[in-house]
Design a protein around this nucleic acid. Structure first.
Lengths: 331, 331
DNA sequence: CTGAAAGCGCTTACAG
DNA sequence: CTGAAAGCGCTTACAG
């Protein structure tokens, strides 16, 4: 900037004014400065300007997700980015991989880079390591899972209701033996969705049978194996509910491979490309809305909104496509 | 940092040394400083430190992709992140949406934030707007599509070869009328893959028939419609090749919906979840390797590697799963 | 309307 | 081993 000022024959403050489109610079000077900017290919250093600015905004937000490559996370990223981009804010994202340590490292890395706010799908159950930043007023919005210790906004799917509607759907189609295929129970969404499963059975007066309940399935292969195994029981399930996208994928594969996709009912969680072609009934989360709302809440906080912390619950939607409508023995 | 120094009763330089793990501070002082850091919840400001550091590294790299939410882009993101994370570097990603203007805005936004390097899947055909940064020595690696004007490293799939192998596979199974379903031809990968299609036909002495070639399919719905339409021709294709993931998805859906997936052969491009269950033969790109290599090339450049610019070509792999092995009339 | 001085939070280059 | 001074590139708070 000093070079530009020298070339244009003005003070640095005048260059600063022109670069930031501040009013009160005579037309002639504006032009001279702009020419110098062009000539020197001057790129203002945002970091330096933030250092001195009173608001100190870096125009960046941090996004912590499970894995940037998974469909939920990347759709969330996209939704957040859309809102951020419209405000000239860049998003720096990172994958936490359900690892508390990595969550902490990444959050700190973002904080050290002075992001203006944080949107996070937490891996750990305790975000107290962020308490200083939170108290200092850094906006944070939790997504998919609420904060445990911190007092912060959250945007969540109605996990329990979504699961309950799926299981009730199966019950309505005449099933009473409904296998549960669940992702790792340390993740709060697994607890919530299992709760929905249990509630649906309870309300229908169907006793819970641990023999057909499998938690902690870590990937689609494990889900496939679990489903196959449950079908070998003396009194096997006539229907299955899968709690999450990879579990759902594994279940679909297993049913197809075993040739049971036409007589065993199935409802999964989360959308998968081609699931429509395969006629798989799914409970869908509105990821676009979740991400968009999370970003909006964050920016409202950045704009000074100091209304009470709120937990936004976004409904899920059951989309019948065939697999969930296969009739059971009690219909 | 001043506050920490005051509390610990030392100079700021000593705090700086402790925070950066520089050697040559007596044990007693280290401890006193660390206690003060703890007590004040001190977080070093990376932006400020970079401003003065001679190397001036922000420990961040920029990633420009088509759309962070699409499978190729997000897998790329993940692969880049894995390498970056191992070096303590964060990645700031942005979606370009095949829009030259947005590409430019984002690239500049990243440059203004002084990222150490750039990995980009370019939308436009001209990145000369980055020429100043490139000349100033900023490392850049192009992915999926080469730079047009800039002299920079690139990591690309063997698009033409991949397409050729797909079409040759269909020819080998007795097809001579092979429909081409292509994504927008303004994208260089579409040109490359179409070249592969054409070459395969040429080598087999099959004349090119524009009637069964459809470029510029923008989404899976258009691809479905195009495939359906081509099947109504008096002399319809007995096989199809789809050039890209969304086109592939649309083609799969159309074949299923028309009930033609068992007699019309098909080979698509790019992986899709559940395509294995559906028995769809695909040409796969090794996204993990592409992203990993791109990141490694970038970091090598950052480490001072000044070997000549290189264009890395990553082979694709044809995975036969059934749909591509349906026999045609000439077998 | 314009610009010189001071300062953001840190590191460099130096002196003790 | 330790720290005071100067400076990174910019903006703030002022004075003219």
């Amino acid at each position: 900037m000093r070079d530009v000022a020298a070339l244009a024959g003005v003070g640095v403050k005048t260059v600063s004014r022109v670069v930031n489109n501040e009013p009160g610079v005579s037309g002639a000077l504006v032009e001279r400065v702009q020419r110098a900017v062009q000539q020197l290919d001057f790129r203002p250093n945002i970091a330096a300007s933030n250092l001195r600015r009173t608001d100190g905004k870096t125009m960046s937000v941090g996004l912590l997700v499970h894995d940037v490559a998974n469909p939920f996370s990347s759709a969330l990223h996209r939704a957040v980015e859309d809102v951020a981009h419209s405000r000239g804010v860049v998003v720096v994202a990172g994958s936490v991989h359900e690892d508390q340590l990595r969550e902490r490292q990444l959050a700190w890395a973002f904080v050290s880079r002075r992001v203006d706010g944080l949107i996070l799908v937490p891996a750990g159950s305790d975000q107290s390591y962020l308490i200083t930043e939170r108290r200092a007023g850094m906006p944070m919005v939790f997504v998919d899972r609420p904060a445990r210790v911190l007092d912060a906004d959250a945007v969540l799917s109605a996990h329990d209701q979504g699961a309950r509607s799926a299981v009730e759907h199966l019950i309505a189609h005449g099933h009473r033996r409904i296998g549960y295929l669940g992702h790792p129970i340390v993740i709060t969404t697994a607890v919530d969705r299992y709760t929905g499963y249990r509630d649906a059975l309870n309300r229908a007066g169907i006793p819970l049978d641990p023999a057909i309940i499998r938690h902690d399935l870590d990937n689609s292969e494990q889900a496939s194996a679990a489903l196959a195994e449950l079908l070998t029981l003396p009194d096997p399930p006539t229907a299955f509910f899968a709690s999450q996208v990879f579990v759902t994928t594994g279940a679909i594969k297993a049913l197809r491979q075993l040739g049971r996709h036409e007589d065993v009912a199935f409802v999964g969680f989360d959308d998968i490309p081609l699931a429509d072609v395969l006629g798989v009934t799914l409970v869908l989360q509105d990821v676009g809305r979740i991400g968009g709302l999370a970003a909006e809440v964050l920016f409202r906080r950045l704009d000074g909104d100091d209304s009470p912390i709120h937990r936004h619950i976004i409904p899920t939607q059951l989309v019948p496509r065939g697999s969930g409508e296969i009739s059971g023995p009690f219909r």
